[in-house]
Amino acid sequence: MMLIRPVQHKDLADILVLAGKTGIGMTSLPKDEKHLAARIERAIATWEGHLERGEQGYLFVLEDSEQQKVVGVSAIEVAVGLSEPWYNFRVGTLVHASKALNVYKPVPTLYLSNDHTGYSELCTLFLDQDYRHNKNGQLLSKVRFLFIATFRQYFARKVIAEMRGVSDENGLSPFWEGVGRHFFGMDFAQADFLTGTGQKSFIAELMPKHPLYVDFLTPEARAVIGTVHPQTAPARAVLESEGLHYQGYVDIFDAGPTLEADIDDIRAVKQSRRLKVVIGESASDAPCYLVANENYVNYRALLVHGGVTEGSLTLDRHSAEALGVAAGDTVRAITLFQQEHAS
């Protein structure tokens, strides 16, 4: 069974293995044992209520219960930019005009921005290559929306997700080569590692404070602004299907797009339902549901083919035990895909 649960201290070794498989460009999951241990500790402290809002962050794991192995992770930051500045580029336009010369020319620009300060963030989504089947990726990504729907009071008005931008297998980023290298004097991989391990002060110290004219960049750098890494395209599609969209903000290192939405407009927040548990057998052709208990500290979620009738959801005994619920308890559920409908 594939089960979502909060991260635990014992998961460090498995998560370190996963971090070694991400490649360059995923700043939130660096292969650094000390940093990952601190990330796990911070998530546990968040669930225990020990941290200020700007430090809070949830980390979920996808566990193969038969193998007793963590095979994926996903996370939510409660409010970015409150403890240290949150940077991105806003893609804008300057107009150069002269009536005398009959010239009117819009010029695309990049502005250094802190506009997303205080927003919640979806981040750190990674699934082992061997498990990218049977809707595991959908489960790992979308469970965050169901958690937000259940515990809405802990999150901001808006949510963002920074998508990994274009880089090759050697860690070469066209945007970094066209922009970042001129200001930072280091390789993309080094800058990526520094930010992933929390060493971000150099961004404020070295980033240009004035708008950058996109037309002055190399064709290769211009071409990747707002473009995702090929391996990230499925993750972007999942988020867009749930209501997030690109609004003209990109990462300052690789120019990957930032998706955003009002949390209350997200499908799982609007459409998920609280249902009473009935123990039994449901038809295998029933709609696929993402189902979670409502236990904040011992949160559990999984996928089931469930039958929904008159405010109840039928779960088999094995699924109910995994969720930690019994007949008559309440769970929150939503169809995994928008087009599916309960009978």
Results as ranks from 00 to 15, higher is better:
K270Q: 15
L323I: 08
Q247G: 02
N88P: 01
Q138H: 14
A38N: 14
A204Y: 04
T195I: 15
I266F: 03
K105E: 14
T258L: 14
F184Q: 06
M163I: 13
G23N: 05
M2C: 00
V269Y: 03
L51Q: 12
E169M: 05
T258Y: 13
G180W: 02
D254I: 05
A79I: 06
A97F: 04
T330G: 00
L323Q: 04
E220W: 06
F216Q: 11
R144A: 07
W176A: 02
L110P: 02
P108S: 11
M26C: 04
T27I: 01
H116T: 11
V103P: 02
E281Y: 00
L16G: 01
L244H: 06
N298H: 15
G328M: 08
L244V: 07
L122C: 07
G196E: 08
L12A: 12
A75M: 08
I263P: 04
S319T: 04
G198F: 07
H182W: 05
G49Y: 11
K99Y: 00
M1V: 09
V143Q: 10
H116K: 12
N170T: 12
E77V: 12
A37P: 00
G306A: 07
L112K: 05
K200A: 03
A19Q: 09
L12F: 04
A268G: 13
N170I: 00
L36P: 00
I160M: 10
N88M: 08
F89V: 12
I4L: 11
P257V: 10
P108Q: 11
H341D: 08
V228R: 07
G57E: 12
A283Y: 03
I263Y: 01
E321L: 10
L18F: 08
D11C: 08
A342W: 06
K99R: 13
